[in-house]
Design a protein around this nucleic acid. Structure first.
Lengths: 240, 240
DNA sequence: GCGCTGCCTTGATCCATGTCAAGACGAACC
DNA sequence: GGTTCGTCTTGACATGGATCAAGGCAGCGC
């Protein structure tokens, strides 16, 4: 990471928006205080790289706010986004000092960082943090495998619908999901294409088709209204 | 798991073929003895399911011998193999009693099993096993993300070459890799197709094309000779 | 206003891969 | 030997999504 410590951010963990979902979620008071003492914030502007593949990385971090992408690139420049990182998601790998993929900030990003070595020492002693990390990692593995099903088996339309439902799940409270729902897409058409294993044109066309079919409304290209989420989800009933 | 304990298997951990790669690889003598005392073997015949999605699973296990696949299936029956499990690979998830995907035995399988609860207790105390588990899980996550690049970006030919090279890496010693290499494909054409996000016909055609191009020889459908691995790998130089 | 620039949409066409269909091959068995 | 069965290969054709190309539209600086 090339960015310097952010001085203008003085969030208190108690009021942290990701307090109950991030790596610290299950900590007791003592462990929580230790994390609190170790943490420091970093801000990364939209568009900038957080880490590049193979680059040295001696921090781990949770996303406090903003959106980032994980991606891999072929030698000749084809790119696959392998993950969309939203608030509470975890970055970095204890026990390894370099990174296997590119991470870049899609929007302005606030990270809650820990230097890797002290963090490794802490998880040796703090069992709830350690368990939480293992659990988060297994969850990511399950998510990655589900995405493999999407990439390998689903049609373009199904991919788009899956993506929209993913955003709904991450940004709308379950109890609000039976009314018309408005979402802001965290990714550009280009990034969506790369995440879904499609081209930008196909993404655009399928969005238009869903609009013509009355399943979504496009307030702007990025702002989507879903009149009936269950009807949209029903598009997947032949799939996952 | 519906299978009963296998009585005819009395392997000693000291001579276990996966001793230095599996979950026990980094254990000191004391931890090793505890694992040794807890373990029991199971045999599963080729073609049988090890676990089905959603099924209760209160063991974790390492593969001692044989090949298994991890897979997910859409409601209407499209299947994606999300992982190929080879000797030393780990099955199960500490902290959760059910499984998110189907696991099935491709060949006859020998598993080294641990009941989940005692295993969970053990990793709380045995730091080397715990670290190894975290490391294995992160490795699987990296592998899954690499596979996403394959599924999303590569051409059929590149997918096949990647798969062949994967098998070479897992079954041939690096120092033998500059001579002609013979490999036995662990998967049928159908399973390869499902793993690579292709159809069986496309797999077959691309294998034939690689043969016509002199990059591989097919002794039988399953037995492949690669006269020059570097030439085969060069097929990927535009890709990963 | 004007002309950028970046992002998105739409249309026309192409092609890699899927689909459908027919055999080929080998193993197991009688 | 012949038959059957499962797996693999090959061919002919269809099509979903890629590619190529043009244009729309909003934001921004001048």
């Amino acid at each position: 990471m090339k960015i310097s410590r952010s001085e203008d951010l003085r969030l208190d963990c108690q009021h942290c928006p990701v307090r109950h979902r991030a790596i610290c979620a299950a900590s007791d008071d003592e462990e929580f205080d230790k994390l609190n003492a170790m943490k420091f914030y970093k801000s990364i502007p939209a568009g900038q790289a957080v880490v590049l593949r193979g680059e040295k990385l001696d921090v781990v971090a949770s996303i406090v706010s903003g959106v980032a992408t994980l991606s891999k690139t072929t030698v000749d420049g084809r790119m696959q986004i392998t993950g969309m990182l939203l608030p509470s998601d975890f970055i970095g790998r204890p026990g390894r000092d370099s990174c296997e993929h590119d991470i870049s900030a899609v929007t302005d990003l606030t990270l809650c960082c820990f230097r890797r070595r002290p963090f490794e020492d802490l998880i040796e002693r703090a069992s709830s943090i350690r368990k939480r990390l293992l659990d988060i990692t297994f969850d990511e593995l399950d998510a990655a495998r589900n995405w493999m099903l999407l990439l390998g088996c689903l049609t373009a339309r199904e991919k788009i619908v899956s993506f929209l439902m993913l955003v709904v799940r991450r940004s709308v409270l379950p109890e609000d999901a039976d009314q018309p729902v408005q979402i802001d897409l965290p990714l550009s058409r280009e990034a969506m294409a790369s995440y879904l294993g499609l081209t930008i044109e196909t993404v655009s066309r399928q969005m238009s088709r869903l609009r013509k079919d009355g399943l979504i409304e496009l307030e702007t290209a990025r702002r989507v209204i879903i009149p009936d989420t269950s009807r949209l989800e029903a598009e997947l009933e032949n799939a996952d």
